[in-house]
């Protein structure tokens, strides 16, 4: 008995190794990045995440040129970028945001220069904008390991992150190691944006972190539910992006970024709608 043509058509974007590996990788990375993104938003670190995403470009380019792991290259790129940004922020009479902007621009320029010496233009474009359709089963395994590690990490430090996001001053007074907890957050943010950059590219990686988070935070659910929902939306972002790409014949990573932004816009609209409802109705929504 053959498959129903309508179902076959529905599953077509996910069919074969080509679609299934891409969707699997995007779903795994999206789920982990969605949860990390909730903390990024609550800690007000979206600008840092964006800066990391762009400034890691030299690491990606060098890894591609050497034929080594892009994830490792991106993580090394983030570490170097963080050092450069901290150094830039020590410039006298310069605000941190201005110094960060200059530092990021410098690193993107260095990435472009290195690429011009050997990496092909098509390859460089894929590092900038991502190429999720090129995912292999090995990439899926790396994404699964990443999702597992991030999940365990966020589970372990959930209560400390919550105390710190709730009120840094009072977190200190109740005995939370504020410096260490803040550093751990930056660490998981760096790993997440580095992994997202290998899938969605240096320029679009941020969408995987902030899009799903902004899609659910305005809905004012409890923290645990918010993190879970952001993971689900993150996974859906990748799959929806694959469908958009398949049917509209648009580049995959741009389609994923558009899906992430659409979820964020939906969240904003949902939040505005909830804010207009009477408090009792909002309370009922929060209890769910």
């Amino acid at each position: 008995m053959g498959t129903d043509p309508s179902i076959a058509s529905l599953l077509a974007p996910l069919g074969g190794d080509f679609g299934s590996t891409s969707a699997s990788e995007l779903a795994l990375v999206g789920a982990a990045c969605g949860a990390v993104g909730v903390w990024v938003v609550y800690f007000g670190r979206a600008f840092l995440a964006e800066s990391f995403g762009h400034a890691l470009l030299p690491g990606l380019v060098v890894a591609a040129a050497l034929g080594s792991s892009l994830v490792v290259g991106a993580i090394v790129g983030v570490i170097v970028a963080y050092g450069v940004l901290l150094l830039a922020q020590r410039a006298p009479r310069t605000s941190d945001s201005s110094a960060t902007a200059v530092g990021v621009t410098l690193l993107v320029a260095i990435g472009a220069l290195i690429a011009s010496q050997g990496t092909g233009s098509a390859r460089f474009e894929s590092l900038l904008f991502g190429d999720p359709l090129a995912a292999t089963w090995r990439d899926v395994a790396v994404a699964a390991a990443f999702a597992l590690i991030v999940g365990l990490f966020l589970s372990g430090f959930h209560d400390r992150f919550a105390a710190l996001a709730f009120d840094p001053q009072s977190a200190r007074t109740i005995g939370v190691n504020v410096g260490l907890t803040g550093a751990l957050l930056i660490g998981v943010l760096a790993v997440a944006i580095a992994t997202a950059a290998t899938v969605a590219g240096s320029l679009l990686a941020l969408a995987l972190l902030t899009g799903p988070a902004l899609g659910v935070i305005p809905l004012r659910m409890r923290l645990g539910a918010t993190l879970l929902a952001a993971s689900v939306v993150g996974a859906l972002t990748g799959v929806v992006g694959i469908y958009i790409s398949y049917y509209a014949n648009w580049p995959a990573s741009a389609s994923v970024a558009l899906a992430a932004c659409a979820f964020a816009a939906s969240g904003a609209a949902g939040g505005a709608w909830l804010a207009g409802r009477p408090p009792s109705a909002r309370g009922a929504a929060q209890a769910t």
């Binding site: 919550a162 709730f166 840094p168 007074t173 004012r220 409890r222 923290l223």
Partner: peptide, 16 residues
Amino acid sequence: AYLPQYDDSRLDFPVS
């Protein structure tokens, strides 16, 4: 155990 003078907590943070 210390109770600070000012409550700087985020009122939009979704905790019970």
